[in-house]
């Protein structure tokens, strides 16, 4: 049936492309979580009145975050080519997309993490201090668990932006559905390929949104 409706689709290529999109999104997401939470924590902890209050660190972190968020993603990829080549050893294929994907979305997620942490009740942090908690305990047993629903819903938003980024990266050779749609659909004027890739990406987005919402609801005991 697939071949009747979409005569130009190579099923094998399509599944590979879909797999590559998932691969890039999930690996980039893992990197984004790690660096995003680090950035978000750094922003939150060094802010005025924070536990590690430090004007300079806060300013520098905010500057890095703002600069990388300001650069359009497609330009960021080009800008990072030398870095990517140095780290990954190539500038082609899904792995080569990862540095740009992570550097592109971690600052965005970092801001969402900062917002989530700001929403944690100051009184609860104060209560933990009054019990003699170490800063490490406050981070891992108060700040992160108490902001978990917001961290997860922020991650859902980030994941969806990331799926969009993978498609852009695909156009300049990273593989995945974006790559497939551009080279096999757009350039050969076979628009059924473009259409199917669009449908596939929309479905992937819906899957991420659905899973994210479910987890958020499950975590939220407020």
């Amino acid at each position: 049936m697939l071949s009747n409706l979409f005569p130009n689709i190579d099923v094998q290529d399509f599944w590979v492309a879909t797999y590559e999109t998932f691969y890039m999104t999930i690996l980039a997401l893992i990197g984004t979580v790690i660096f995003g939470i680090l950035l978000g924590l750094l922003l939150y902890m060094t802010t005025k009145g924070g536990i590690w209050e430090n004007k300079y660190v806060n300013w520098a972190t905010a500057a890095v975050v703002n600069v990388f968020r300001a650069i359009p993603f497609i330009i960021l990829i080009l800008l990072l080519f030398p870095f990517t080549e140095f780290v990954v050893g190539t500038i082609r294929g899904p792995n080569a997309a990862l540095p740009a994907l992570i550097i592109g979305s971690a600052p965005f997620y970092g801001r969402l993490v900062e917002i989530a942490l700001k929403e944690v009740d100051k009184g609860v942090v104060e209560a933990a201090k009054s019990m003699g908690a170490k800063t490490r305990t406050i981070i891992f047993k108060v700040l992160l668990p108490e902001s978990m629903p917001a961290l997860v819903s922020g991650l859902t938003v980030t994941a969806i932006a990331l799926i969009g980024y993978t498609a852009m990266a695909g156009v300049i050779g990273a593989g995945g559905l974006g790559n497939y749609a551009y080279y096999f659909g757009f350039q050969r004027r076979e628009f059924d390929v473009v259409f199917l890739c669009t449908v596939a990406i929309v479905i992937i987005v819906f899957i991420f949104q659905f899973i994210g919402d479910r987890i958020t609801n499950k975590l939220d005991k407020r």
Partner: peptide, 30 residues
């Protein structure tokens, strides 16, 4: 020293992500 000084608050300041049991266990974990 703070572990030997208990404190209660106007707005309770409980961790909403923990059950009653786990909230009470928190200072013991600390």
């Amino acid at each position: 020293a703070r572990q030997e000084i208990g404190m209660i608050f106007q707005h309770f300041n409980l961790l909403w992500s923990r059950t009653v049991k786990d909230n009470i266990a928190f200072p013991l974990e600390i």
